[in-house]
Design a protein around this nucleic acid. Structure first.
Lengths: 193, 193
DNA sequence: CGCGACGTTGATTTGCCTCAACGATTGTGG
DNA sequence: CCACAATCGTTGAGGCAAATCAACGTCGCG
């Protein structure tokens, strides 16, 4: 049962009791997602929190000139969602696309709200999860403001060694906010040491 | 009573009942902060959530070459804290400094946890508050990755018209991740239209 | 097999920074 | 409340980090 992976994920925060496990299990939907398949498309409302059981996703926006900019990746044991669209129920400006064949567990808004109101533990746990994500984003902003591209690349390798092995460099470049050509030059420069 | 400003702030989320108001009131401490005074200094652990009743603060990091980089501002009816340091209880890498003479209400960690565990409403409300902040940060990352400095400046003026009136341009430049000189050139360029 | 995504290199351009200088504004201590 | 100091905003010359554009070989996939 893939839902066990989600249940043991919660053990990192506050472990669930049997009743909570059952409620959670009944409220998520398992989906198989092919490579290059979208689970969120620009203009659509984001209606789910998606928990990645296996595989990998990217979330990105497309600018006026048609270029894609990766905002975040999500692989095993991570949630992905456009939280802004999810809450406002307005059309998203983002895409979420599978980079690899993936299995996810989706939680719909009405079910999430049910869990929030019936079981305070979910409320607390999701608060902590998003606080951690917030801190991560804040560090990224600080880095983007104050470091060079080479420093940011090295720090990405350091922080996400598993991701950097399985992602093509084009995707990493987009996440760092640089062109693939320039990343190639950075890599060349680094290897000369 | 300045705490009324905090209580009516909560009305934007979930209104507090009398018991909750009383508990909150008993657990915040009011402080007067002078211009240029720090409420968090690099190396110290961030021990409070601070709610700004009046005045304005900046939170910033200092890079290897000694330059400051503003991560966020907080004025009336906003919380400011280094959430990472607050939770990990490790020394912060950031400063929080008053830009104007200010009045704040501080909530200590033990008191916040008390409110979280005794009153689910605080849990839910702070979850929503941080979700909103998360969305804001995410948009900022996307902008920083995909827009020019001029676009980001115009968008800042649009999004925070009140802040942009009361802040010196040097502070805005630091927030946007550019030099004051270059911001001046951008402003000159904009006014020629 | 053929096509599209990927990684690399080189030449050129550009957005933004650095350093320096100056007047205007603001804050503060006496 | 004034006078001085500090911060602020602006302009210009020159430099650097990173983008753009173009070309080419490789690899994996249908």
């Amino acid at each position: 049962m893939t839902v066990n992976k989600l249940i043991s994920y919660f053990d990192n925060y506050l472990s669930l009791d049997d009743k909570e496990k059952e409620e959670l299990t009944n409220r998520v939907i398992e989906k198989n997602i092919k490579r290059k398949q979208f689970i969120l498309h620009e203009g659509d409302v984001c209606r789910h929190y998606s928990f990645v059981v296996s595989g990998c996703f990217k979330m990105y926006g497309v600018d006026a000139s048609g270029k894609a900019h990766n905002i975040q990746f999500a692989s095993e044991n991570e949630w992905i969602s456009d939280i802004g669209s999810f809450h406002s129920e307005k059309g998203s400006q983002l895409f979420i696309e599978a980079i690899e064949p993936s299995i996810i567990l989706q939680l719909e808004k009405s079910n999430l709200i049910y869990l929030y109101t019936q079981y305070p533990k979910f409320n607390r746990t999701f608060r902590v999860i998003i606080e951690d994500k917030f801190v991560e984003l804040q560090n990224r902003i600080l880095q983007k403001i104050s470091s060079t591209a080479e420093e940011r690349y090295l720090s990405f390798l350091d922080q996400y060694p598993l991701l950097s092995n399985r992602l093509p460099n084009t995707q990493i470049a987009s996440y760092l906010g640089i062109t693939p050509e320039f990343l190639s030059k950075i890599r060349n420069h680094i290897s000369q040491k």
